[in-house]
Write a protein that binds this DNA or RNA. Sequence first.
DNA 1: TAAATACCGACTAAATCACTAGGGAAAGCG
DNA 2: CGCTTTCCCTAGTGATTTAGTCGGTATTTA
Lengths: 152, 152
Amino acid sequence: MISNKAKYAFRALLAIASAPEGLALTSAEIARTHSIPHKFLEQILLDLKKAGILDSRRGKSGGYVMLRPADTISFGEVLRLFEGPLAPLPCLSRNAYRRCEDCVSEAACEIRREFGRAYDASRLVLDSRTIADALRNSPYGAEPGHEVRRAG
Amino acid sequence: MISNKAKYAFRALLAIASAPEGLALTSAEIARTHSIPHKFLEQILLDLKKAGILDSRRGKSGGYVMLRPADTISFGEVLRLFEGPLAPLPCLSRNAYRRCEDCVSEAACEIRREFGRAYDASRLVLDSRTIADALRNSPYGAEPGHEVRRAG
DNA sequence: TAAATACCGACTAAATCACTAGGGAAAGCG
DNA sequence: CGCTTTCCCTAGTGATTTAGTCGGTATTTA
């Protein structure tokens, strides 16, 4: 199970990415429309900003906008931001490799091998699917403002 | 990351499954040879017994043996035993379905859809690969005693 | 009967989760 | 300037989970 924090981050990102280009959404607005505790959401948006995913403006008519285009932001990247390494074993993480204590041989470890298969499978999805993809296939959702103009 | 508990469970299971048929391994033995805290391992083996995966004998020359054959025990089953539902979202779990609070529409939820893809991919691996599979493909490991006799 | 083993319940210290509290800093408006 | 609105930052807190430990009981076998 992913954390609420990560889930909130995705909700917020999807909202910001699907807003008309240039229009900043405030944390209060997003919190209200998506039932996310406001102060908690502020922290999350801050993290997304520090990660270089969002940009922000202060003061009246301030808020958050996308910094990078939505089609360059994968689910895996965001998930790692809030959950840490996604690998089921430390010895399978590329970013945060750590040898298992008491591991005799990684090459011979059946557990590593089997979980490696599972991890490969899910990583392939998580690291290739982007926020833009998710919005594009959405049955009701708009396409992201950064990619395609809405008809109107 | 999976818990130590689950990792210990896999180590112990693989050890018991690869022991000669009928030979019971004691918790102390497994703990020693695999660097697992003994009392902690006892709890884990108990859980595996309660789940109908292992059987046990008490007293001198007691220990643990497989109850079900190793090729009927998937990694997913064992993992669920110790980690609870594997689904990344409660609304994606078949066994332990729970609606997300504040979910307007599951069909329209982009997060659910994308994580559904990732979960499908890893579930396919985890629920199909068995303890026997893991031992069979092991470069150094023996084949499980329950399946095939060792040459000798 | 003694030793070895599985079985059982309670406890604990540390970490993580899901927030809340209480501000400060900057931008814009009048 | 001062006021409001927003983002920004740090600390704290109660509940839960993790990773065990501790101290024993029950059962089997030699």
